[in-house]
């Protein structure tokens, strides 16, 4: 592995770090904001920034899937959830539990451990970025050549989740006594 200095950072790295900063910042807002709907919207920002990160990392197909599914579907689903549970729209002061301080300590400790381990472990790792490695063509070939079985299993899982969600949310289906 050839050693590459951290300074000066390449353009790609600068772009990636900026996107990462956006992602981390918006994620922080997601977990600290006092408005439910804002949290969902900050989540959109976070996911979008992550999609950008994927793009920089040449994983373009994953990036678009991220935008489609996360931003397009998951967040919308969450918004529906917020509405259906009749959550207060607007500021509410009781979104955080009394567990906050302990949670913060644990989270900071987690971050400390993970970051130190990761920095210690991958200090000299350097990835050469080759455009096209994550294109739809390559990934599609890989999925349908090598990953067909997990793919099919996953489709069954999705079906099961679909049915489960329907059964759970419909009120006219009673459990067997």
């Amino acid at each position: 592995m050839r050693a590459v200095d951290f300074w000066p950072p390449s353009t790609l790295e600068i772009v990636f770090l900026l996107l990462g900063l956006v992602a981390v910042g918006s994620a922080l807002l997601v977990v600290t904001t006092r408005q439910l709907v804002h949290a969902a919207l900050w989540l959109v920002v976070c996911f979008g920034a992550l999609a950008g990160c994927y793009l920089v990392l040449t994983a373009e197909f994953v990036a678009w899937v991220q935008v489609l599914i996360y931003v397009g579907a998951v967040v919308v689903l969450l918004l529906f959830g917020i509405m259906l549970t009749r959550a207060p729209i607007g500021r509410s002061d009781d979104l955080d539990s009394g567990n906050r301080v302990v949670a913060a300590v644990v989270a900071v400790a987690t971050a400390g451990v993970l970051v130190s381990v990761v920095v210690g472990g991958f200090q000299h790792a350097y990835a050469d970025l080759r455009p096209g490695a994550g294109s739809a063509e390559e990934l599609g070939a890989s999925i349908f050549r090598n990953w067909v079985l997990p793919f099919e299993a996953l489709s069954v899982l999705l079906l099961a989740a679909l049915i489960g969600a329907i059964v759970l949310s419909r009120t006219d289906i009673k459990g067997r006594r």
């Binding site: 994620a27 955080d96 989270a107 993970l114 790792a125």
Partner: peptide, 24 residues
């Protein structure tokens, strides 16, 4: 691209997720 950058970003995101799970 240094692998440390995405790894650190991921670690921070994960920790923030942990905080959210524990505190919300």
């Amino acid at each position: 691209m240094h692998v440390v950058y995405p790894a650190v970003v991921a670690a921070l995101l994960f920790s923030i997720g942990v905080y959210g799970v524990l505190a919300r």
